[in-house]
């Protein structure tokens, strides 16, 4: 069938042709006389089950989610540093140290702060470091064998061999953007809990809380 004939048949089905045009069409193609009725049958079937409008489940929540996402995206766009495509969260890095004793862990935390990003090659790289203790220095290199960025801290106090490694355990982890917090509690149930959180710029804060 020629493209023009397809269009004419479509227009006839949709009632877009006048009587003279319909007569001319059917004279040229008498085999089409049932086509309109058949097309209308299919249309009626579709309309019997598929609606032009449906009630959205949880409509207030639907609107709320849209507002929330718009505001989050605009806020993220406004605070994102120029030239950076992503910043990795600090907390996944922190949780790797949950088996280290509390004292050493806090020393490690306050001794070193890193800003991380994902390089164009795909692996995490440390783009800047800060060590408030001038006696501590940080160096890093990517290990192909380990497929990980290796961070070396020199100048920290030695951890006594007698000190227990698993001194803390993760009590809870709150990943919400506005209130990210990792709570560690002493494994022996005594002493203070540690609450590690991050401000909206992603910089870590360490707080202690009495049990």
């Amino acid at each position: 069938m020629k493209p023009n004939e397809e269009e004419m048949l479509t227009q006839w089905i949709d009632g877009e042709l006048d009587d003279a045009e319909v007569a001319e069409l059917l004279e040229a193609h008498p085999e089409w006389k049932d086509a309109k009725a058949e097309a209308q049958r299919v249309g009626n079937l579709l309309r019997s089950e598929m609606k032009a409008e449906e009630a959205v489940p949880y409509p207030d929540f639907f609107n709320h989610q849209i507002r929330k996402r718009i505001l989050e995206e605009e806020e993220e766009a406004a605070t994102e540093p120029a030239g950076w495509k992503e910043q990795a969260a600090l907390f996944p890095w922190f949780t790797r140290f949950r088996l280290i004793s509390g004292t050493a862990f806090v020393a490690l935390l306050v001794g070193f702060v890193a800003m991380v990003a994902t390089s164009p090659t795909g692996h995490t790289e440390i783009v800047s470091t800060y060590t408030p203790n001038p006696g501590v220095t940080a160096s890093m290199e990517y290990s192909d064998s380990a497929k990980a960025m290796v961070i070396r801290l020199d100048g920290l106090d030695e951890i006594p061999a007698t000190q227990e490694v698993a001194g803390f355990r993760v009590k809870s982890y709150q990943p919400d953007i506005d209130a990210r917090a990792l709570t560690l509690e002493p494994a022996d149930g005594a002493g203070q809990m540690l609450v590690l959180s991050a401000d909206r710029a992603g910089l870590p804060e360490v707080r202690t809380a009495s049990r």
């Binding site: 009630a55 959205v56 849209i66």
Partner: peptide
């Protein structure tokens, strides 16, 4: 915009659901 969402969410949802 919230008014527009309320006005058209039923049609948008139906179209995509279909």
């Amino acid at each position: 915009f919230d008014d527009l969402v309320t006005r058209y969410r039923g049609k948008v949802y139906a179209m995509i659901l279909n």
